[in-house]
């Protein structure tokens, strides 16, 4: 067999494994990214959407944050203007997570059948006054 052919086989193996790793990776680790309204309509249409790991991007309802510092548990409500979900999170939240005004958050976790979203991860995005401010909190 010519070296060129052998190389093509090797190259095909690499390309195929990259493709395989990508498709498997997406299948295994991909999560839905939904707004509260999308989540509400998904669960209404298909109850199996409860207790599925997903991300929800929404705004924190001002004044809804209640912290229990000693247990590091925090609960708040998020909304997109049409639907609102209560969220419970245990862990440290980023500095940018405040009651102040309309902060955007991405919560990762599961929506329970009781309608409460249990977050394993809260990311807060800051408002317009900042640039380049990444913040992450991990459970």
């Amino acid at each position: 067999m010519k070296a060129g052919t052998k190389f093509l086989i090797g190259a095909a193996v690499i390309v195929a494994s990259v493709g395989f790793l990508i498709t498997e990776g997406v299948k295994e680790t991909g999560v839905y990214f939904l707004t509260p309204t999308e989540l509400a309509s998904k669960t209404a249409a298909d109850p199996s959407f409860y207790d599925v790991g997903l991300k929800m991007g929404a705004k924190v309802v001002p004044g809804s944050i209640r912290r229990d510092s000693s247990s590091r548990e925090i609960d708040f409500r998020v909304s997109d203007g049409q639907h609102t979900f209560p969220v419970i999170y245990r862990g440290l939240v980023p500095d940018t997570f405040t009651d102040a005004n309309d902060i955007e958050v991405v919560v990762e976790g599961r929506l329970g059948r009781d309608g409460v979203f249990r977050a394993t991860d809260v990311l807060a995005k800051c408002g317009s006054r900042y640039e380049a401010v990444p913040k992450t909190a991990r459970a």
Partner: peptide
């Protein structure tokens, strides 16, 4: 992985994101 949220929304109508587990795995 970076463009996946956009691609999945274009193709399937729902946004699907991949995070650090995806990138590490691959």
């Amino acid at each position: 992985g970076t463009l996946f949220p956009i691609l999945s929304e274009l193709v399937r109508g729902t946004k699907i994101t991949v995070g650090p587990p995806f990138f590490n795995r691959v």
